[in-house]
Amino acid sequence: MADDTQGIRIEGLRKRYGSGDTAVDALKGVDMAVAPGEVVGLVGPSGSGKSTLLKCLGAVIEPTGGRMILGDHPIYDDGWRIRDLRALRRDKIGFVFQAPYLIPFLDVTDNVALLPMLAGRPNGESRERARELLAALDVEHRARAMPSQLSGGEQQRVAIARALVNRPPVILADEPTAPLDSERALGVIRILNRMARQYRTAVIVVTHDEKIIPTFRRIYHIRDGRTHEEAGEGRALD
């Protein structure tokens, strides 16, 4: 069970699109808690509210009600929210997408170092931090390469490094293994688990991928805007 005082915790999260007769309740009271160093799966059919939940967690859209607590700090509480969502996304949340979406005109190091630079850290320190992560993810030999020169697996590892570089307490991974074959998909999950433990980061993986679902110890199923938790197989990755 997740540690309630850290990681990310959401309680009774609701999201309504529109108003009046045309209103649609995409989230109807979602509860979820992910501890630091834990990787959980979030699965559900299309239209179940996965993307809406991810956007709420990613501070991209504002919930209609409920609570979201990141670490020890509430970021949303029934209509109240912290003011600077952009800084929150930059400093507290890491994103890994289905496609890596690396910036094509920056090399691998600067793709990773961009976030600390945006946060105001010196270029040298930012690049040093990027190189450490690239080494931890075994892509330091491609540090000067452009994204177009990387394989799909390498691009995804660089994207993970970018998500981790500001040491966020939570990483949101949106279908990170969808374009990869089984071996590479499991490799990505292995890396996410290792990084989660190493950096004490809570990781939420939104996925349809049957190959990786058995690897999670806990899985949140979402259907009709509500979640329910169940234990996963937690199949060994090593």
């Binding site: 990613g58 991209v60 952009r86 800084a87 996304r89 930059r90 400093d91 994103f95 997408f97 979406y101 910036i103 961009l114 976030l115 945006l118 946060a119 970018r162």
Partner: peptide, 8 residues
Amino acid sequence: VLKLIGTR
């Protein structure tokens, strides 16, 4: 992506 990761 730049906006999502916090670019002003």
